[in-house]
């Protein structure tokens, strides 16, 4: 596909998303709109996690650490003066004086994560395999402990609250589109090919003259930027959160979406988000019980988790590289795997 056609396809895709975003709230109830917002945020987080974990093969368990940093940084920045006085009275002066709007707070949150990723990644991205997973898990734990103990900034383990509820469907879908376009441009470029070579065989990559550390570190850092952005979106969606919101449970929820969808493509990340979210919502409603008149399914609380677990196991048995594997939806060159 030519550059011009790819550009047109991108515009069309963006227009379709914009149209859906505009009409969706008129078509469906508020509950479904909220589910779609959460899916868009998860899409940002899972696709950015896939950049490092899927494309460079550095399986990080620390992505949610950046999400947490993004949520807290943008939360502190966008709290109103009054909220800061009542919730965070011990905040240093230079921070308590500023209140940023949503967009700049989100971008600052992403940039803080970039700096953090460079510092953390410089040593960690030298590791491979299980070692890097365990080390990045260590990063997640450190972030959690710091958040709990930096009481002046975060209220510690207590709920951080008062964040304005600004994550609308437009913001969430808009950031998802930005994330997918940026990631697709990186992944399907010479840089992306280097990422794959590093994933496939580190020694061969070095032997042809590819610098492994810069490849891994750049992917890790770009992923961290969107993790911070997604964290800000999630924080401004929830309004209140605590360090426990961004820990092991959330890590494994995002990882299961990535693995189920297929971590070697951007489409896979998005499919994983949709499949896992829709399944858990449907099953959660089913477990309250159904009444068909003639016969009734009694409520079975907790059953949804079991069924979800079984579905995950079946997908992993029959599609070990996820639903999409390394395939992309053919929406033009910007999401199409170029085999040349």
């Amino acid at each position: 596909m030519s550059r011009a056609a790819a550009f047109v396809a991108t515009i069309v895709a963006v227009a379709v998303v914009a149209g859906l975003v505009a009409i969706l709230p008129q078509l469906v109830n508020d509950y479904i709109v909220r589910v779609v917002i959460v899916m868009c945020i998860s899409g940002v987080l899972v696709a950015s996690m896939g950049l490092g974990n899927g494309f460079t093969g550095v399986f990080s368990l620390g992505h949610v650490g950046f999400v947490a940093v993004g949520a807290y940084v943008s939360g502190i920045l966008s709290l109103s003066q009054a909220a800061k006085h009542s919730y965070l009275p011990d905040l240093p002066g230079w921070l308590s004086g500023i209140t940023l709007p949503f967009l700049p707070a989100t971008i600052v949150a992403g940039l803080v994560c970039v700096v953090l990723a460079l510092v953390v990644g410089a040593p960690l991205m030298r590791l491979s395999g299980y070692f890097v997973s365990v080390a990045t898990l260590g990063f997640l734990i450190i972030v959690n402990v710091v958040l709990i103990n930096a009481v002046d900034f975060t209220r510690g383990a207590r709920t951080f609250t008062g964040v304005p509820l600004e994550t609308t469907l437009r913001w969430a879908a808009g950031w998802l589109v930005v994330t997918v376009i940026v990631l697709a441009r990186v992944v399907y470029s010479p840089t992306g090919r280097r990422y794959l070579s590093v994933r496939e065989d580190v020694i061969a990559a070095r032997a042809v003259g590819i610098k492994v550390l810069p490849a891994r570190l750049s992917a890790f850092t770009l992923g961290a930027f969107f993790a911070g952005v997604g964290g800000s979106l999630y924080g401004h969606y929830l309004g209140s959160f605590s360090p426990a919101s961004f820990y092991m449970a959330y890590t494994f929820a995002l990882i299961s979406m990535l693995v189920i969808g297929g971590m070697q493509s951007i489409s896979g990340a998005l499919v994983g988000v949709v499949v896992v979210t829709v399944l858990s919502e449907v099953l959660r409603n089913l477990e309250r019980g159904l009444d068909f008149g003639a016969f009734a399914i009694p409520p079975l609380y907790g059953a949804s988790q079991i069924v979800l677990g079984i579905i995950f196991i079946l997908i992993m048995i029959f599609r070990p590289s996820g639903i999409m594997g390394d395939r992309e939806f053919g929406l033009g060159r910007f999401v199409k795997r170029k085999r040349a």
């Binding site: 090919r193 794959l196 070579s197 496939e200 065989d201 020694i203 061969a204 990559a205 032997a207 070697q264 390394d326 085999r339 040349a340």
Partner: peptide, 9 residues
């Protein structure tokens, strides 16, 4: 040590 999931090209 070829890059297995990448194409020949």
């Amino acid at each position: 040590r070829v890059f297995g999931s990448l194409s020949v090209a």
